[in-house]
Amino acid sequence: MIGFIVNPVSGSGRGAKIWKVIDEELRNRDIPFRVRFTAGPGDAVRMAKEMATDAKITAVVAVSGDGTVNEVIQGLWETSLTNPTVFGHIPAGSGNDFARGHGIPADTGKLELFAAACRGPRWRRGYRPAGIEKPHRRQFHRLRV
């Protein structure tokens, strides 16, 4: 199961709009997921920790801008020794410096990259999804201590 942490107000509401597209895509493909929406500072840290310690969740994806990405990574980092977790990011902010710096496309029309990653044969805790070609790997990052 994929865990999503969405900041609905990132990018002046772009986070909520992008989430609608992702939600529909996941439901059409019968991909199991759990979603949590942030309401203020610190929420994403707490949510990321909760998701990282949930054995059912194999990856945590931030649908947000740079601030929420920072919080999600902080939460995953704090649990990485005991629960290494795959991190993904779908840019929804106004600047998206993290995405740009990691070669993650900001074009929501490229959600096929994400869908292709979800079709990988198996998700393994702590590893990139298997069977993903190079362009798709940019959507996911493995956290290491």
Rank of each mutant, 00 (worst) to 15 (best):
I73F: 02
F87C: 06
R100T: 10
R34L: 05
A99F: 08
P135M: 06
N28G: 01
T79H: 00
I73G: 01
R119W: 00
L81S: 09
P105M: 10
Q74S: 09
D107P: 04
V35K: 15
F98A: 02
T82K: 14
G101E: 12
W19M: 02
V86G: 00
M47D: 05
F140M: 11
A44I: 07
G103S: 04
E71H: 12
C118F: 07
D66C: 08
V72P: 00
F87D: 03
L76D: 01
G103W: 03
G42I: 04
E50W: 01
G126H: 09
P129W: 04
A16N: 03
V63M: 08
R138Q: 13
T53H: 00
F87P: 03
R137M: 09
K134R: 14
D54F: 05
G120Y: 05
R122Q: 10
L111S: 01
P129G: 07
K56P: 01
V60G: 09
M51H: 02
N70D: 11
P105R: 11
R14A: 11
G95K: 07
N83C: 15
A44W: 06
N28V: 03
H136L: 15
R138N: 14
G65W: 12
F33Q: 03
P121R: 15
G65T: 08
I90V: 15
D107A: 13
R46Q: 09
R128Y: 03
A116V: 09
A106I: 14
G13T: 02
R122D: 10
R144H: 10
V86E: 02
D66W: 11
